[in-house]
């Protein structure tokens, strides 16, 4: 089990068990869970909680790790909240190899920087894309028409994250 000082909060939502851990100690928490038998990283993703008044969140970006124990079988969801521009968290690609691409996808879509990742580049969007599409402040349908003058200005704009 994860040490008590690592657990900020835990609970069960809609039959799904979850635990919140401090973002700077996410590697400790995940490697402890891995030795406990949760050997499969089902998925890793991010949720942008920008202007969500339904609940209280300690940070804007929630990084979600869904783990599974194939023997029991049991699931657990590990959550960590981060802020900042760009938001930063440690990479877990060496603990769970499937995280490699998932972290690249999360970087691509949310601009979350995974420290220690061997090649954090865009994976789904083109390499010269500006912005991170799944952020809540990235408009849907807000792209400009390709090859127009506007498009040129937008394409050459400096990248923030």
């Amino acid at each position: 089990m994860i040490a008590d000082d690592l657990v900020i909060e835990k609970g069960v939502t809609a039959r799904d068990e979850w635990v919140t851990v401090p973002a700077d100690r996410v590697r400790d928490a995940l490697s402890t869970l891995k030795t406990d038998g949760y050997r499969l990283l089902v998925f890793l993703t991010c949720v942008d909680h920008l202007i969500d008044s339904s609940r209280e969140f300690p940070g804007r970006y929630e990084i979600v790790y869904q783990l599974r124990d194939l023997e029991k079988p049991a699931n657990i969801r590990v959550r960590a909240f981060i802020d900042g521009d760009p938001p930063r968290i440690d990479s877990v690609h060496d603990i769970f190899p499937p995280a490699n691409w998932e972290e690249r996808e999360t970087y691509d879509m949310f601009g979350v920087v995974f420290a220690g990742h061997p090649g954090l580049t865009r994976i789904l969007m083109p390499d010269d894309w500006v912005g991170h599409p799944l952020r809540r402040d990235y408009p849907v349908g807000g792209e400009v028409v390709e090859f127009s003058e506007e498009h040129e200005i937008w394409q050459t704009a400096p990248e923030e994250a």
Binding site: T13, A14, R15, D16, V42, F43, V47, R55, N75, R77
Partner: peptide, 15 residues
């Protein structure tokens, strides 16, 4: 209702 949930099903390709 507010909350989050993960459901997996077995497709022809996996989870």
């Amino acid at each position: 209702p507010p909350g989050d949930v993960y459901v997996a099903v077995e497709s022809g390709r996996g989870e």
